[in-house]
């Protein structure tokens, strides 16, 4: 599904190489986790895949089901099926959460040549999905993420994911800022979306999120490359021994 080949990326402003040849394939129905120390390029990878400004791809490719992602605008990538759950969801005063969600859902449908969701159908769907994430009506009415707690913001990300039904979900440190209960709730939301047609790329520092979202494959990223790939056990190894051993081993 998601195929990244020899991806090299630098920061436009600082002329600093962040990704130095990332190779990664995520198959449909699979959950891949990327772990790695701070500054290894994990978040950069998520931003480059979703199309954020400020990064220059100097080499390599990234495709989703054969479509070149790097050539697309962020909204085109979204319509093609890419979803990034932000590490720091953005607060947007003045834009209602519900309005935002509906605009997004219908913009994607329109881009794919599908019929737009009627107000009633949308409302029904969003209410049902919000309920399972314990998002109350008040949160739906409020401006996007404004005044939300850390946990509410992350739940709101998952709600968007559930409504947009993307093919490829990228979760950037979704566990950061969450207590154990909130993490469970978010993980349940993610697990509910797991299916054969959908791929996941879960970026995290810690193994604990992976207790709740069980990965099929775990990658270790360091200094802009995937340095080691393994099964779920690899995450446990990191948890027990830290990154130092692995990095020493691959160097």
């Amino acid at each position: 599904m998601l195929e990244i080949k020899n991806l090299h990326v630098k920061l436009e402003e600082e002329d600093k190489q962040i990704l130095k040849g990332v190779d990664l394939t995520v198959e449909a129905g699979k959950v891949h986790a990327i772990m790695g120390p701070n500054g290894s390029g994990k978040s950069t990878l998520s931003y480059v895949l979703s199309g954020r400004d400020g990064y220059e791809v100097t080499e390599g490719s990234a495709t989703l089901n054969g479509e070149d992602l790097l050539e697309m605008e962020p909204e085109e990538r979204a319509a093609a099926g890419v979803f990034l759950a932000f590490q720091y969801p953005v607060e947007i005063p003045g834009v209602g959460n519900m309005t935002f969600l509906r605009t997004a859902v219908n913009a994607q449908r329109k881009a794919r040549g599908e019929e737009e969701l009627s107000a009633t159908d949308f409302l029904k769907e969003v209410r049902a999905k919000a309920k399972s994430l314990k998002i109350d009506a008040d949160m739906l009415k409020r401006p996007v993420n404004v005044g939300f707690s850390g946990g509410e913001k992350k739940r709101n990300e998952i709600l968007q994911m559930a409504m947009l039904e993307p093919k490829m979900c990228i979760l950037d440190e979704t566990d950061s800022g969450l207590d154990v209960d909130a993490m469970k709730l978010v993980a349940e939301g993610v697990n509910a979306l797991r299916n054969e047609g959908r791929g996941f790329l879960v970026i995290t520092h810690y193994q604990r999120l992976l207790d709740h979202i069980k990965p099929d494959v775990v990658h270790i990223m360091a200094d802009g490359r995937i340095v080691k790939t393994g099964g779920p056990d690899l995450a446990l190894e990191v948890e027990n021994n830290g990154y130092a051993d692995i990095l020493a081993e691959v160097n």
Binding site: G51, E73, A78, A79, F83, L84, P89, V90, F100, A104
Partner: peptide, 14 residues
């Protein structure tokens, strides 16, 4: 720009 990217990343045209 951050808010703009956030909206676009959800599929809302620029």
């Amino acid at each position: 720009e951050t808010a703009l990217f956030y909206l676009r990343s959800r599929g809302v045209p620029v």
